[in-house]
């Protein structure tokens, strides 16, 4: 099980994923530079947070044209697990691997804070070891995280069970107050129809050690690691 962490110019969370893979989970991992054209040898791809290509034009709009994205799309279409967090989620939406879009927070401000998200689906490779309805304490850090999609897309997401995480209160209630950015239906993370591509605004890598306030985020890696041998 080897994790590939993508780096676009302007990406900044790659180091944090690397830290979690190297020092916390002690698993095999490697960086993938955006100008590379192959992802051969990797079993799961991570698109980390940051401001890829400065997020100029629109978040993720330029990154989808980075050379590596063709290989990422092929990998995903073949069922390979891909997780995009924060800016990575935005890029996956721009690349057409996930439906919908992430708009400016309703506060019109950047928000960095702890939130709670409720696990809505355990039938993805990332959440399969979660408890039903497990609530994760996890940070967000974004200016554009308000999930939005047309009604028919939203209906499809619902009927296909593609809504994986919703912002919730610590005890798992889905309320307006628990929604940090105005996302439709408190959506914090979704998957594709094939269930192998996950996008979420929160940062699981920042919630992987008790020293930093939570290790709830580890469950997202553990789903894939269960069954895989440690390094």
């Amino acid at each position: 099980m080897k994790w590939g962490v993508l780096i676009f110019p302007g990406t900044w969370s790659h180091q944090d994923f690397a830290h979690v893979f190297q020092d916390v989970l002690q698993v095999e991992w490697g960086y993938l530079w955006h100008k590379e054209t192959s992802v051969a040898g990797y079993d799961c791809l991570i698109l980390p947070g940051g401001f890829a290509h400065g997020d100029y034009l629109r978040c993720g709009a330029i990154a989808r044209f980075s050379p590596i994205m063709d290989a990422v799309v092929r990998f995903a279409r073949n069922g390979g697990p891909v997780m995009g967090s924060c800016n990575g989620f935005q890029i996956l939406c721009e690349a057409g691997l996930l439906p919908g879009a992430l708009l400016r927070n309703d506060s019109l401000q950047y928000r960095c804070r702890w939130v709670h998200i409720r696990t809505e689906r355990r039938d993805t490779p990332f959440t399969r070891t979660s408890r039903p309805g497990q609530v994760l304490k996890i940070p967000i850090s974004h200016g554009e995280g308000r999930y939005s999609a047309p009604p028919q897309t939203l209906a499809k997401l619902r009927s296909n069970g593609q809504i994986v995480f919703r912002y919730a209160t610590p005890d798992g209630q889905i309320t307006d107050e628990a929604n940090p950015n105005g996302s439709l239906e408190n959506i914090a993370g979704i998957c594709n129809e094939g269930r192998n591509v996950l996008g979420l605004m929160p940062h699981p890598e920042r919630a992987s050690e008790t020293l930093l306030g939570s290790e709830d985020g580890r469950v997202l890696f553990e789903g894939l690691l269960a069954g895989a041998l440690p390094r």
Binding site: D16, C112, S141, H203, E205, R206, E209, L212
Partner: peptide
Amino acid sequence: VWQQYDHMLFCNTV
């Protein structure tokens, strides 16, 4: 004010 700043990047903020 400070919730507008990323204060957790690099996984160091204790």
